[in-house]
Write a protein that binds this DNA or RNA. Sequence first.
DNA 1: GAATCTATCTAATAGGATTAGGTATGTCAA
DNA 2: TTGACATACCTAATCCTATTAGATAGATTC
Lengths: 211, 211
Amino acid sequence: MARAGLDTDEVVRAGARLADVEGLEALTLARLAGDLGVRAPSLYAHVSGLDDLRRRIGVRGALELAGELQTAAAGRAGADALDAVARAYRDYARAHPGSYEALQRAPDPRDARAGAAATRVVDVVRAVLRGYGLDGDDATHATRAIRSALHGFVSLERGGGFGLPLALDESYAELVDVLDRGLAAASSGRPRRAGPAPRARPRRTTPRPKP
Amino acid sequence: MARAGLDTDEVVRAGARLADVEGLEALTLARLAGDLGVRAPSLYAHVSGLDDLRRRIGVRGALELAGELQTAAAGRAGADALDAVARAYRDYARAHPGSYEALQRAPDPRDARAGAAATRVVDVVRAVLRGYGLDGDDATHATRAIRSALHGFVSLERGGGFGLPLALDESYAELVDVLDRGLAAASSGRPRRAGPAPRARPRRTTPRPKP
DNA sequence: GAATCTATCTAATAGGATTAGGTATGTCAA
DNA sequence: TTGACATACCTAATCCTATTAGATAGATTC
């Protein structure tokens, strides 16, 4: 038999592609082996099982996503950066639904690379928040808020949770605006419960295309 | 053989309990049948398969969740109502993780009850937004924003996506504050991009316990 | 060319979903 | 009381999946 010449990277890459095209549920070792022209047990030479494969797809996805976010954020600040990162986030989740779902699972605490990949995503978001004057605990809370909002939207959208997909682009833009306003208010000095938002803060610099 | 006396409701209830205690992944017909003192094929008399069971658990969960949210919102308005609903939402997801996950899947378009259950949840959120003066399209976008944020937080929290579970209660409170501020600004009249938030809007009426 | 490494194979086990078809329990009417 | 019927439950069987064990053959190295 001619060898297929696989290695772990190739298997993970093919697994990610399959998951992205047919959904993470459709990713089975039997199916993936078929796609690769190999019998299912052969995959165990490269991956230690289905769970391991899913985790590796997740790590790969997290690194990819972090790269996209980093590119989007480069050279931008404040609301502009938030907007760009939010778009890149949603774009990635829609282009790679299987990888995105895999990346959403808790990283294996024993796998340093998994933790590092997750950290890279968080770090990009955290960097954006410097433009809002947030640091320390405030930045942690704000990072969690942004991640929650973006992930929640993307997750509901993918699952069909919004019913008719009417004006989803606009809804997403509004969500990002709500975050922007809320975070700007949070950073405008304590006590931050009663004061009006600052007036002259620069807003989005590039006009948003109408959906 | 003595009959177990099952019916569909009993099977779904037991399935939801199993999913809540051991996770939706642990819900198998074989396991559930064992719990009910019955063989796996017997469940097909009450449920048309594993997928159907999951969907029914989801519908049941959506109705339960809608009830909790409705109770939380009763007699409150504005930021107070938003806060109460947000807490109830998170409480439900933590108390019933399996049902929550099941409810998150897209409802079967052919099942009227599934659609109605999903609608009930959305309606409670939408009702809260009346206290923010939002209606029509604005209310739709705002509803989606709130659902995204709450679901995203709860989903990341459950999946261990926040790393160390440090100060999660506080982060959640801050997230709700960000929503409140952002929505209040959205409702304060158009053009809504530049104006300061209204000053005298009533804030949360009950002090939030420190985490 | 021999030795080694390893990617792949076949064979086998185990567990899950699901279908087909039989059995016995409960209900209801005569 | 007895018969008929509906149905809750069963066993047996099929198919698919993950996974392990052990053999083989292609590639690499000395």
